[in-house]
Nucleic acid binder design. Structure first.
Length: 853
RNA sequence: GCGGGCGUGAUGGAAUGGUAGACAUACCAGACUUAAAAUCUGUUGGGCCUUGUGCCCGUGUGGGUUCGAGUCCCACCGCCCGCACCA
């Protein structure tokens, strides 16, 4: 008897699959299509366990669908543009292009041994000019359809390095390299008009039934539809009125002040001749651009000295303040503050000594607001103190509606639907991205490049020398010749746009490109119509909002430009978000108070304690995200070398539900390997022996059919860990079974088939060992015999007042009255009743009996 | 700060509102072995006693709905994800 040798088996079957070409996707009318896609990787340099988990899940689905008679498309590519390539060039020389393609080659070599059922003939990287040239064509089409425009927007500006910083390069308000305090600065940038589609993107969420509810909810909140009132405050100095937007117009009588954004035109106008105010606004512009930084930062205000009249009472004057928490991008950039019913406004008013006016009270506990704003749900009835629309007791929502109606009737305001969703700024002042294909001409202005000039390719050198990435700023901007071009419109000398596109653009249509990856146009209609939509999309929850929302926008925009059929405007039919792979961190206290991190292989278990080689006790932090800096990364390559790909695949599927994080443990990986070795051993024993005691055939086959049923259900519902638990149980049953050789062979073949999506190499080996026909990858998925799933008798727990007191065994379809009689006759039940008469007996057929006394 | 999620034995986890802890790890005990490894078998949520088809407690904490709650509702605590230039 031979031993399980993953090395030999895996190489052998990968070659067999290649030779048979079974993973190559081709259009055909005779089978239903199935498109399964995992979010493509960023080529960081090495694959990690998260990749293994993500792609194994997709592979399980792909292989399962292949064996249920589908024409499967399962492609792979590389999300290859982005900052790390430039950072690497900055840190250690070299070129982003070389670094990226080198990483892709390495990672592909690392992925291949996993035995994924990928159609590699469709592979591409987003930094291939063939890909980003088509992306430039899309941009030009979007421009023509008025889906892109230019406007000013703020960026993080490092005043020392004189460069734009990404949010992650701003640490505590300071530039990551220079350490200088970051400022917010305006630049003219390109925007996709995603906000025009806000309502549509919101409404269409309802149709995404196979998306996790939490993702739909997150998108809904992100789009942030609100109904509010837009109206103006007249200025007492007679200047133009200040228009505000509010979602709580019902609290207008609780107004304390009018607040404007530091970027509001009024603030900008005042800056010119008020140095103190200018200094305040400059202070407001310090720090990063993230919403988090703005929301958590100290709330600052400045009294402009301007006053306005309350729209309901011309004698009531309100001061106008500049406040740093008011965003110019949302609403009109101006608000009125009602401190009694908004905690942020209240804190602000207490800080600056502004009045607090109550407008409604809790019905049961009417009392004025002190230091805690009264903010009940809008659906809760409250007691109005004095409402201009004549309300006494009403919910917030009723009051809002009444107020809008009142304002519209009286002509001083109008109901407005607003969205929190902002337009998508796509300009990046960086080298390693897709160049934006427009030209700036002194005479013609901004001119789109001609499609025949695409791709506008990135330059590799500058003036014959390698580009120097150690200088801060955009190399395209300072390149000696790359900018120079002829105006596509008038032919005069002009300059290219030097901004490149946000990498989210690259990932917003790659799924469509996979349907025709070598085409001379972004997509080919017949291919897109055949393969789209993605039937199952799999990726991390961290992409719940931006990537997925941008992709939904892009699919719509591509449809408008004729690059996708209307049926593909929601590109992902089903979405699954998987958890991370985590690993314990082993740390000991270091000399400077900072922890010292130890590699898993450098610690050992001794007398129930984890210690380093020299015996120091180690603190174990479980379930931490794998991170190179914490030394808790497990390299899939070493796992594959030690145990084989099937073990790695089996483990990442087995130990946790797929949507949750899974903790990598060495013990778990070893256990997976042991189990696969056991399956191999059991199967080869069965293959070798064709005689043996004959009994219990039916028990084993019954078990087999139950396992087929449960595993099929598990695979279809992403219950991989539960499916694997059933496979463990079935393996145990098979090992102990006294059934005859024929039945055992049948059961072992079923086991091979059921394991095939998860451990495809071992499954092929077992299948062929047992004389299976052809490749197990091609074999039709087994179908459970319904008749074998039903037991004739069922065991019912009997509860007394919800506590389990006994168990009865009854025929599965015995009627309720009979079950009740038997349950009550059980001695343990009688003892629990202790003479009491049952008030009620609940019999749930096939489930439970509950006697209530 | 705002939005979303998660929390069950020593550990990973299972459980259409219906027997909490399936399956696995770890530990312990046994078989095989000169020994070890490998393999096989068995035990294991906590407590109590009268050792039973026994009783009590038990799914982050505190309340609630229900004949019945890990599951549904409310509040709190802790951790994780996202916050528009990380991918």
């Amino acid at each position: 008897m031979s031993r399980y040798s993953a090395d030999e088996i895996e190489a052998k079957w990968q070659e067999a699959w290649d030779k048979a070409g079974i993973f190559r996707a081709t259009r055909s009318a005779d089978k239903p299509k199935y498109y399964v896609l995992e979010m493509f990787p960023y080529p960081s340099g090495r694959i990690h366990m998260g990749h293994v988990r993500n792609y194994t899940m997709g592979d399980v689905i792909a292989r399962y669908k292949l064996s249920t008679g589908h024409n499967v498309l399962h492609p792979m590519g590389w999300d290859a543009f982005g900052m790390p390539a430039e950072n690497a060039a900055m840190a250690s020389g070299g070129h982003p292009k070389d670094w990226t393609y080198g990483n892709i080659a390495t990672m592909k070599d690392q992925m291949k041994p996993l035995g994924l059922s990928i159609d590699w003939s469709r592979e591409f990287a987003t930094c291939d000019p063939e890909y980003y040239g088509q992306q430039q064509a899309l941009f030009l089409d979007f421009l023509e359809q008025d889906l892109v425009y230019r406007k000013n927007a703020v960026v993080n500006w490092d005043p020392v390095d004189m460069t734009v910083l990404a949010n992650e390069q701003v640490i505590d308000g300071k530039g990551w390299r220079s350490g200088a305090a970051v400022e917010r600065r305006e630049l003219t940038q390109w925007f996709f008009k995603i906000s025009d589609m806000a309502g549509e993107l919101l409404d269409a969420l309802d149709g995404l039934e196979n998306w996790p509810a939490k993702v739909r909810l997150m998108q809904e909140n992100w789009i942030g539809k609100s109904r509010g009132l837009e109206f103006s405050f007249d200025r007492t100095d007679g200047e133009d009125p200040i228009t505000v937007y509010t979602t709580r117009p019902d609290t207008l009588l609780g107004a304390s002040f009018v607040g404007i954004s530091p970027d509001h035109p009024i603030a900008k106008a005042l800056e010119a001749d008020n140095p103190e105010l200018a200094a305040f606004v400059a202070e407001c512009r310090k720090g990063g651009t993230t919403e988090e930084a703005i929301e958590t930062g100290e709330k600052l205000g400045y009294d402009t000295g301007i006053t306005v009249k309350h729209p309901l009472d011309p004698t009531w004057e309100l001061p106008v303040w500049i406040a740093n928490f008011i965003l110019m991008d949302y609403g009109t950039g101006a608000i009125f503050a009602c401190p009694a019913h908004d905690q942020r406004d209240l804190d602000f008013c207490r800080k600056y000594g502004l009045p607090v006016v109550d407008t409604f009270y809790d019905i049961d506990d009417p009392k004025p607001v002190e230091n805690e704003a009264f903010v009940p749900p809008k659906t809760e009835k409250v007691k109005w103190i004095n409402h201009f629309a004549g309300l006494d007791e009403a919910t917030g929502q009723e009051a809002i509606d009444a107020t809008i109606a009142y304002a519209e009737e009286n002509g001083w305001g109008k109901g407005v639907t607003n969205y929190r969703l902002r337009d998508w700024g796509l300009s990046r002042q960086r080298y390693w991205g897709c160049p934006i294909p427009v030209v700036h001409c002194g005479d013609c202005g901004v001119v789109p490049e001609k499609k025949e000039n695409l791709p506008i390719a990135l330059p590799y050198d500058e003036g014959g020398k390698p580009i120097d990435f150690s200088i801060p700023g955009n190399p395209l901007d300072r390149h000696p010749t790359w900018r120079d071009c002829a105006c596509p419109s008038c032919g005069k000398p002009a300059t290219r746009e030097t901004d490149t596109m946000d990498t989210f653009v690259d990932s917003s249509w790659y799924f469509a490109r996979f349907t025709a990856p070598r085409a001379e146009t972004p997509t080919v209609m017949e291919d897109a119509a055949y393969w789209m939509n993605v039937d199952q999309y799999i990726g991390g929850i961290e992409h719940a909002i931006l990537h997925l929302l941008y992709s939904r926008f892009f699919a719509r925009a591509m449809h408008i430009c004729g690059h996708l059929p209307e049926s593909a405007i929601e590109p992902f039919d089903a979405l699954f978000t998987q958890g991370m792979v985590t690993h314990a961190i082993y740390q000991t206290p270091g000399a400077n108070g900072r922890p010292v991190y130890h590699y898993p292989e450098d610690v050992e278990l001794k007398d129930g304690k984890v210690v380093t080689k020299d015996g120091t006790e180690v603190e174990v932090i479980p379930s931490a995200k794998m991170s190179k800096s914490k030394n808790n990364v497990v390299d899939p390559v070493s796992i594959i070398n030690a145990f084989g790909a099937d073990t790695a695949r089996w483990f990442v599927l087995s130990d946790s539900p797929p949507e949750r994080d899974v903790e990598w443990t060495a013990a778990g990986a070893e256990a997976a390997f042991k189990h696969l070795s056991r399956v191999y051993r059991i199967a080869s024993d069965i293959a070798d022996s064709d005689t043996g005691p004959q009994a219990d055939d039916n028990d084993l086959l019954r078990e087999m059919h139950k396992t087929i049923h449960d595993v099929t259900g598990g695979v279809e519902s992403f219950g991989f860990n539960a499916a694997i638990a059933k496979l463990y149980a079935f393996t145990n049953a098979l090992a102990k079974s006294k059934a005859g050789a024929v039945a055992k062979k049948q059961a072992a073949k079923a086991l091979a088939q059921l394991m095939a999506p998860m451990t495809p190499h071992l499954a092929e080996e077992v299948w062929s060992m047992l004389g299976g026909d052809g490749l197990v990858a091609n074999a039709p998925w087994p179908v459970a015999d319904e008749k074998m799933l039903i037991d004739d008798t069922v065991t019912l727990p009997v509860q007394v007042n919800g506590k389990r007191r006994a168990e009865i065994s009854v025929p599965k379809d015995m009627d309720k009255a009979e079950v009740e009689k038997i349950a009550l006759s059980v001695e343990a039940v009688q003892r629990a009743l202790d003479g009491a008469t049952p008030k009620k007996v609940i019999v749930v057929p096939g489930r439970i009996v509950n006697v209530v006394i």
